[in-house]
Computed example of a mutant assay.
Amino acid sequence: MSQYEAALSGLSLGHDDVTVILGGTQGIGAAVARKLASMGCSRIIIVGRGEEKGQAVVRRLKELGGDKGVQADFIKGDLSQVEGMKVTARAIAAVVGKGNLNYLVQCQNGVPTGTIELTSDGLSRGFSIQALSRFAMFYHLEALQTFSKNATIMSICNPGQDYPGLDLDDLSLEKVGEAGRWQALLLMDQSKRDSTVIDSVIKESSLRYPQYRQLHLAPGLVKSEGYQNWALPFPLSFIFPLGFAMIGRLPDEYATVPIYAAYHPEARSALAGSLSYNDKLKPIALGTSAANAEKREKLWETLQSIFGAL
């Protein structure tokens, strides 16, 4: 039993624990939902693209939390496009109601592949899911007054990387790709860009909305379905699966870490010194771009212009 599993063993969640999990139909998101249901979280709403997977997770949550009165729901949402994010935010707000959302857990994955697939918005699909939606969903849910006063917003992704060459007019890295960047190197560029954008958004939102608690956790190697289907260029297609097989954890093994960080009372003081943490909950420093107030503010303004008002 891990130290976090042991800490959670005596913790029971109750009526003030309304949770929305983005990317909750598989992998880490579904594992977090299952653990929360077993702990008696009063209401769990999972959001994802797959109706069949979503309903299967809801049925499992009701089984796990049946004797504890757990209410579980599924919202189908497309986080790959601007309008889809707005529609999803409105659907969440309608189900949750004003001021009732205590926890927003963001596990949506649009992992880098070294390729660029543009949507009708002219934005990279993977980037929209992985990074832009983390801004948009918080931004829109806040505008809809969905969060409770002391809500926790947690993102499980890849903090601490830095992409100092971030061009606000080329967020999807089209120009970089058109310049003939080798696919493996473009993948690394995408990973650094995603981390820079997400870190910047979380840091800036923590300053603009200090009433909320923000967390950004690096999961390390977790053997989720999303990573099993990750289309990687050579030699990463060989290296990454080997790493996952040798040292990767299953989603249910990892789930106790983010749940401890977000839900355990002692974690509020234990993790008060930083926004970003690794899979052992050790602080991770912001990259130089995310730490730069001027760059963060310009990025925030750019994202506001992309997503606009509801």
Rank of each mutant, 00 (worst) to 15 (best):
W182K: 15
K175S: 13
E142K: 11
R208T: 10
V222S: 03
A136Q: 05
I156A: 05
L168W: 05
Q106P: 00
I129A: 09
S191E: 10
T119Q: 06
Q214V: 02
M137C: 10
T115G: 12
N100E: 15
L144G: 03
A143P: 00
S120G: 08
G122W: 04
Y209C: 13
G97V: 06
L207G: 00
S195W: 03
A179C: 08
M188W: 10
I153V: 15
M188E: 12
L171K: 10
L104H: 07
S200E: 04
I156D: 02
G110V: 08
D121H: 06
C157D: 14
Y103K: 12
E204N: 02
Q130G: 00
D194T: 06
D162W: 09
D169E: 15
T152M: 05
V201S: 02
R208D: 09
L171P: 06
S195I: 10
G122E: 10
N100K: 15
T115M: 09
L104G: 08
L173E: 10
L123P: 01
R193Y: 05
E142H: 12
A136I: 02
Y212H: 15
L168A: 09
A179R: 14
S205Q: 08
F127W: 13
L144E: 07
E174W: 03
H216A: 07
S172I: 11
L168S: 05
L185S: 14
V201K: 10
F127G: 02
T113Y: 06
A179W: 01
R181K: 15
D189F: 13
F147K: 01
G110T: 08
Y209E: 07
C107K: 09
G180M: 04
T119V: 12
A136L: 07
I202Y: 13
G180I: 13
T113K: 13
L217Y: 02
A136G: 00
L215T: 09
Q214R: 08
G99I: 03
N158Y: 14
V105Q: 04
R193M: 13
F147V: 03
F147D: 00
P210G: 09
L166A: 12
V222R: 01
A136F: 00
S206D: 09
P219L: 04
E117R: 09
S200P: 02
M188V: 15
R134A: 08
G165Q: 14
H216L: 14
D121G: 04
S124W: 06
D167P: 11
D170S: 06
I153C: 14
L132A: 08
D169M: 06
W182Q: 14
L207A: 11
K192G: 01
P210W: 13
K175P: 00
I198K: 05
D167N: 15
Y163L: 11
R125I: 01
A151P: 08
G180N: 09
R125T: 12
F138M: 10
M188T: 14
P112K: 02
Q161V: 00
G126H: 01
E178G: 13
I116S: 12
K192F: 12
C157G: 07
I129P: 00
G126Q: 04
D162T: 03
R193C: 03
G97P: 10
L217N: 03
L118D: 11
A179H: 02
L221N: 01
V111L: 15
A151C: 07
T196K: 06
V111K: 00
I198Y: 08
I202N: 06
G180S: 06
A131Q: 10
